[in-house]
Nucleic acid binder design. Structure first.
Lengths: 342, 342
DNA sequence: CAATGGCTTGGTAGCGCTGTCAATATCGGT
DNA sequence: ACCGATATTGACAGCGCTACCAAGCCATTG
């Protein structure tokens, strides 16, 4: 026969309830919905809990209530600064709430993503934040059957699973090119790395803008599947120059590439922007303080993370967010590196 | 009387056991220690689980076993690239294991850290990874009484709580200064931001190296509590030049500051390294591809995270790691920005 | 004054799994 | 063929909390 597995010093809800002179269930209610208690008992339970240093056992709570207080977050990369900003927003928004974060890294693989998704959803998360709109069909199915708020972040698309917050990468890239065209640049190269779906859409935006201006030329495009880096920016820029020596500007799908291109220009003693204009994407902090300062497309990454988490919280609170799809927009930061052609 | 709360479609361990023709407890054992089963039953349980798509309920497991399969990770910042590298190492090491990560951000506050620590430890984590060696006395007490592997990362110190992996920030800074001295630089400035304990120790290393060379001068030091950024690097460097216009080199406590200083030099048309040598810290990727390339102290951040997680895993497996304290060292990457003085 | 209804509180059972120990099967050695 | 030792398997209870229902309490109402 199994023995009583008594746990000596541990403080359980029952101990708090006894000290407060109420039933365990009333004490339990105090932690979930204090409003439901009479003022007197509320105070008694509160002080008893504090006196004993009670910390609820989350596993027991999850088992009994059949739900957890965990919000799953799926992002494709931990290295990319873009996602660290988003993450910071999410953590900040959830700070102080009773929810915690379960983070996983899909490494830009939608199959990996699907696997992680199943893993997460099996534990009944309170909510889910997932990157992008390119999930596998199975992933979508799983998400549609599950009953928890889901926010897709980073971009916008036609059929949100539940909620969505992001901006149009196509429009953002197009606006960057429009800026360069307005400044008088004509042979505008394109540098792309990693080529994930969002980068792909930036390429589409570039292509559309160039085609509209009747300036499109496939020779101007250099891309690679290799993950981005400053060094890679230099290499790709060199490749581009080899293919199209007559370019007068380059649009980089992110700021690391742009910085690499800038350094490569310096190495070749090419004047920026006189001989070569450069525009990046994301507007990381350093873009505003380089020499020359680098133009970029500002995206609101921190707000994206923060709002996504807040949308989840609101839904969990029963208050449906004002809009299920939020466009955070972007703005082209026009700096020295793309100033008007002399 | 309470009703049977039956959950219709859900697959529980009992269902798997029934299909496999074994008792639930045997099925349970399969998931925790397959070796303990006979080959036949092992195969039967395995195929039954796969057929039903069984996913264990972690909350129930945690409640019954009185422990979780979560490794807590406490880091001071989500923005700092340094920590994203460490995190990536941790995630990579734990990928495929049954453990998951619970991440929290202390925001460089040891009080915040203590609060998060209590929160974590109350849920009985399988292990803990914590940044640095400057915890509050209470934090230390809590950690010493708890029974789980704990790894302190990022630096080394005299009295590890349990395990420790890092390097000497003091020695690393001293080596950077030694390099500059060897190259013939004499008036070497110091730029510091955030000034967390590790940065402080780098300052100590700088001070010691300069004092040994009889070149120490407090006028050469510029620090601030403001979080680091490239822009700040430019600003601090300008401050330093105002205080000590005769400096011939500058040691920056991180690479962002170094990059900012480089840009400021360019803005002032100061030749690097002819008029001003620059050395950074951490050796982020871009340091090797800037123009000129920037010297820095390479630290093994990814390995630090990876090894820390592996040390936890080994301990949980009952295999005590070879060494409880690991010094990952550093290396001074000598590049153009600190080449010999002409 | 009984009936009604809202607010609070409590009792009971069970969420899905595993720790402990006991029982049974297997095996080599004498 | 018997013994003890080892490898497998099973029974039971309970981890700490909450869902559900019921009951108690009080004020209001016809």
């Amino acid at each position: 026969m199994a023995r009583k597995r008594i746990t000596p010093g541990k403080i359980r809800l029952a101990e708090v309830a006894k000290l407060a002179g109420v039933s365990p269930i009333t004490a339990s209610r105090f932690f979930r919905n204090p409003e439901a208690l009479s003022v007197g008992k509320r105070a008694r339970v509160e002080s008893a809990a504090k006196e004993l240093g009670y910390v609820p056992n989350l596993a027991a709570r999850a088992l009994a209530s059949q739900r957890t207080e965990v919000i799953g977050v799926l992002i494709p990369s931990l290295t990319n600064n873009v996602f660290s900003d988003v993450l910071r927003g999410i953590y900040d928004a959830l700070d102080g709430s009773r929810y915690s974060i379960q983070l996983a890294n899909t490494r830009y693989s939608i199959l990996q993503e699907e696997r992680l998704l199943r893993l997460f959803l099996a534990q009944k998360p309170a909510g889910l934040i997932i990157t992008g709109i390119n999930q596998t069909a199975d992933s979508r199915n799983v998400m549609e059957t599950v009953d928890c708020p889901i926010v897709q972040i980073m971009e916008l698309g036609p059929s949100p699973i539940d909620m969505m917050i992001g901006f149009s990468h196509f429009d953002a890239a197009k606006a960057a090119i429009a800026h360069l065209l307005a400044q008088g640049y004509r042979r505008i190269g394109f540098l792309g790395a990693r080529m994930d779906p969002r980068v792909q859409r930036r390429l589409d935006g570039y292509r559309a803008a160039m085609a509209e201006a009747a300036l499109f030329d496939p020779q101007l495009i250099v891309t690679t599947a290799i993950p981005t880096s400053v060094t890679l920016g230099g290499t790709l820029f060199a490749d581009l120059l080899a293919k199209a020596p007559d370019i007068d500007a380059v649009f980089c799908v992110n700021d690391d590439l742009a910085l690499g291109a800038l350094f490569e220009c310096k190495r070749r003693h090419m004047a920026v922007p006189e001989q070569m204009a450069i525009v990046g994407f994301n507007d990381l902090e350093f873009m505003a303080s380089s020499e020359p300062t680098l133009s970029s497309v500002r995206t609101n990454r921190y707000e994206m993370g923060r709002n996504a988490a807040m949308m989840v919280l609101e839904t969990l609170d029963g208050r449906r967010p004002a809009a299920p799809v939020v466009d955070l927009g972007f703005s082209v930061m026009e700096r020295q590196s793309s100033a008007r052609r002399s």
